[in-house]
Design a protein around this nucleic acid. Structure first.
Length: 824
RNA sequence: GCGGAUGUGGCGGAAUUGGCAGACGCACCAGACUUAGGAUCUGGCGGGUAACUCCGUGGGGGUUCGAGUCCCUUCAUCCGCACCA
């Protein structure tokens, strides 16, 4: 064994060894408990960044730990490889998206392999590969078949720079999530997935995910945005049409003093046409159109509106109330129309004040003034007033009875409203999975038969920047025959949102080579659900919601037994440098490749796991990396120097007969096993697990000074140290494990179990406090009774002196910890 | 505006059930070895103080024998949502 630690040499050696011997290859095995460890697969941008390293290092600790604990561990990796950057690169550099993407994958795969992660590379998937997107298309057809994929004309978010449609979720503060340009509105025929049909289940089943962070569950809950209330219609004076409103406060329906439509509401033109107000209303609508979505949704914007000239009849009291249109009512929530109750809704209140509309109190709160004007809307508890026969009812009771009354009289009914919208999946781009639909002049939209999948992307494409998909220009692609009637037909040229591809990839890993089905149900049922999913919190809403939706759908069509894809979720923090996210523009990027080349993967992994607990942000520190490297060097030297002592050991350890120093080392070994095991398994506190391993190393270093070394104990200590460290820094541990005479890989060792007996101490140090202040430390027999402890404390000279002549009010004893003597 | 998270030495962070604040690491200081040290080893390292000791977990208040931890209040930073009827 070399005295010098050379990570470059040994890491390569072991990576090759693992690969050659198929170490991380797994198949279903009913005899072992399964464990599915998964990290979010990356977009193949071409280079690994520190965020990836962190993500995969965390996942690898979990995977290796579980494997060493006897689990049959599935730990796969793949590529989320469709998407815009490939196409942009194609436009810019004239290369083909496929060529660009696969070259990036090759490069990133090499980088990833230098990290020494325990992946089963035989299960690698790439979403842009026809073998994969064949089944993304299969998913589309299944959804279509089940009425969950449909087409409609919709005002969509259009990114003028990317030249494509964005889902609501991809619009961040009115700007494109990817390129940050301002998003426009455009009216287009688009494909949608009916995720709203699953809204309630997606909400309810959050309860079944105790292994998810509350933060993520709350975000999803808010995104689904369930609210209970009722919907009812109001007649419009002089018109046949009725207006439907949604409200969560039916109890305030007698307080309606006006009503408001969204400016985009389809009835606006009908009720204003040919009236004196038409001009003003049109002007207002045009003015609204000029305001961007960003400003429109900002609360800085002052409420504004105009009267339409029309009146609605309140079905509860037959009152005539004016109909307005206003900027604060949104077309895409509820019915795009509200009943306005200024006394009990702050927004209506502000509007009513501005335009001098009447305000009528219908809920009497405890401090509602009898006379005089309200200064703000009252939305608290109280009882109904000015509400005819409903007077005196509480808010909750009133809501029930009003809904009841409306249902009996066919005015309206109780409903539940969600903020969640259907998922717009059409993209006018080339580099995505083609939507498997054919438009036939006779048969209409017709699905491509399953046996004709995949609908392949044509390779010879011209990447012009037009508003349309480049596929619109490839005749050989769009010109086709109708699968139903055989007549001439045109293929759909839109492709699917890449989130579709990533909504089911975790099931494909279970059976990656299946050419008939996306996966075999038995195989998927063996592995699914994912036991631990790890990735960035930025996917808390979109990806995770879509993946949950797909899983529920796959459950419904009996492909899979799980209703949820990910039992446990860990959202890792960002990797920062100088307090900011690493980015090219800030010039604070640290390249994993350079770090690995210089220090080795083991050091890089160790530092990143040691610097911070996984869910918190991590501040990159070059000096910290240096420290981790120093630690591994220390371990190396320790093993190297002790090696001669570890040979030909015949004696066994008899814990009973150990001397004091040996006993303390023996204790430390088991305490470390306990600490590291619990830190990994229960808390993902890798940083404290590593610090415990460092403590053991320190103690082993001090053991060098000991004259009569217990060699068996020493050997045990070093073996356990290496095993405990191996999930974090596997290469060096393999090498050292082998160098102390072991034939088998360290990865094949069982994870050690601590001996509770070893953790029983003869004596413990306890603290003696006087009125809560520490005054003395005493060594007392372990598990001494409260009385014994009290006596020992009171008899100690220092305490005697301090309590002399004082009145002892109370003595509190915490066994094995402390004695607090309260004096006056 | 609403919701959530965080706040502990010079720095990253520990303290798992209300029980010794600062584990482990970095930086720094002193020493050893050395031709040399940006290697390695040993020791020190929250603040005030010569010392006894006192103060100290963003600020203020409270509960408790005892609070980083629980309660109230306030400030700062970050994240999510943003007129959701």
């Amino acid at each position: 064994m070399d005295i010098r630690y050379e990570p470059g040499r040994i890491e390569k050696k072991w990576q090759e060894h693992w690969e050659k011997n198929n170490f991380y290859k797994v198949t279903e095995d009913e005899k072992k408990p399964k464990y599915y460890a998964l990290e979010m697969f990356p977009y193949p941008s071409g280079n690994l960044h520190m965020g990836h390293v962190r993500n995969y290092a965390i996942g690898d600790v979990v995977a290796r730990f579980k494997a060493m604990n006897g689990y049959n561990v599935l730990h796969p990796m793949g590529w989320d490889s469709f998407g815009l950057p490939a196409e942009n690169a194609a436009i810019k550099h004239g290369s083909h998206p496929a060529k660009w993407t696969f070259a990036n994958i090759d490069n990133m795969k090499i980088q990833l392999k230098t990290l020494g992660i325990s992946y089963d590379w035989d299960r690698e998937v790439a979403t842009c590969h026809p073998d994969y997107y064949k089944f993304t298309q299969w998913m589309f057809l299944k959804l279509y078949e089940n009425g969950l994929a449909y087409k409609k004309s919709a005002a969509v978010n259009w990114c003028p720079s990317c030249q494509t449609v964005l889902a609501n979720e991809q619009v961040v503060e009115g700007c494109c999530e990817r390129c940050e340009s301002k998003v426009d509105k455009k009216q287009l025929e688009q494909w949608f997935f009916k995720i709203t049909e699953y809204a309630q289940r997606l909400l309810d089943d959050l309860e079944k995910l105790p292994g998810w962070p509350d933060k993520v569950k709350t975000m999803q809950k808010n995104w689904i945005g369930r609210s209970e209330g009722c919907q009812f219609s109001m007649a419009i004076e002089g018109h046949d049409e009725k207006l439907t409103v949604f409200t969560t406060r039916p109890d305030t329906v007698f307080g309606v003093t006006y009503r408001v439509l969204a400016p985009e509401h389809p009835l606006v033109s009908a009720i204003t046409k040919g009236t004196p107000q038409e001009e003003e209303v049109t002007a207002f609508i045009n003015q609204i159109k000029l305001v961007s979505d960003v400003d429109r949704s900002s609360n800085e914007l002052e409420k504004a509106g105009v009267f339409t000239g029309a009146y609605a009849i309140n079905p509860m009291n037959n009152e005539k109330v004016p109909i307005w249109i206003a900027n604060y009512v949104l077309m895409d929530y509820g019915t795009g129309a509200i009943m306005a109750v200024p006394a009990h809704d702050q927004r209506d209140f502000d509007f009513a004040k501005k335009y001098d509309l009447p305000i009528r109190v219908v809920i009497q709160g405890s401090d509602t003034p009898d006379k005089g004007e309200l200064s703000e809307a009252y939305s608290g508890e109280g009882f109904m007033v000015n509400s005819g026969s409903f007077n005196g009812l509480s808010v909750t009771e009133g809501q029930k009875q009003i809904i009841d009354h409306m249902e009996r009289n066919s005015i309206g009914n109780g409903t539940i409203n969600y903020r969640l919208r259907d998922w717009l999946i059409s993209r006018q781009r080339y580099w995505g999975a083609p939507i498997p639909i054919v438009y036939c002049p006779h048969c209409g939209p017709t699905p491509v038969p399953y046996e004709d999948l995949p609908v392949l992307l044509p390779e010879d494409v011209d990447f012009k920047i037009t508003g349309e998909s480049p596929l619109n220009y490839v005749e050989s692609f769009y010109k086709t025959v109708c699968p139903a009637c055989g007549g001439e037909a045109r293929r759909e040229t839109d492709t699917m949102d890449t989130f579709v591809c990533s909504s089911w990839y975790f099931t494909r890993y279970c059976d990656p080579a299946n050419s008939n089905l996306p996966f075999d149900s038995d195989k998927a049922n063996y592995w699914m659900p994912v036991d631990q999913y790890i990735g960035g919190v930025e996917h808390a809403i979109l990806h995770l919601m879509y993946a949950r939706f797909f899983t529920k759908f796959l459950y419904d069509i009996k492909m899979i037994d799980s209703q949820e894809p990910f039992s446990n979720l860990l959202t890792q923090g960002m990797v920062l440098k100088d307090g900011a996210k690493m980015s090219k523009s800030k010039g604070n990027v640290v390249s994993p490749e350079e770090i690995i080349n210089y220090y080795g993967a083991d050091t890089a992994r160790l530092f990143i796991l040691f610097a911070s607990p996984p869910e918190k942000d991590l501040e990159w520190s070059d000096q910290g990396v240096e420290g981790s490297s120093r630690f591994l060097n220390r371990v190396w030297r320790l093993v190297h120097d002790y090696m001669p002592e570890l040979k030909d050991i015949t004696e066994e350890i008899n814990p009973e007969s150990l001397n004091k120093v040996d006993k303390s080392l023996y204790y430390k070994i088991h305490a470390t096993i306990k600490k590291v095991t619990e830190d990994i398994e229960e808390r993902f506190n890798f940083n404290t697990a590593i610090s415990a391993i460092m403590e053991l190393t320190n103690q082993l270093n001090s053991y060098r000074e000991v004259k009569d070394k217990n060699k068996a104990l020493l050997k045990l200590a070093i073996e356990e140290l290496l095993i405990l460290l191996s999930p974090f820094s596997p290469h060096i541990c393999e090498e050292l494990w082998q160098s102390i005479g072991n034939q088998d890989s360290i990865y094949l060792q069982s994870w050690p179990k601590y001996d509770p007996e070893a953790l029983v101490l003869d004596e413990v140090e306890v603290v003696v406090q006087i009125s809560g202040k520490v005054k003395e430390r005493l060594r007392v027999p372990a598990n001494a009774s409260k009385d014994e402890m009290t006596q020992l404390a009171l008899n100690s000279p220092k305490i005697k002196q301090l309590t002399n002549g004082k009145n002892i009010v109370k003595i509190i004893v915490v066994p094995n910890k402390l004695i607090n003597i309260v004096i006056k």
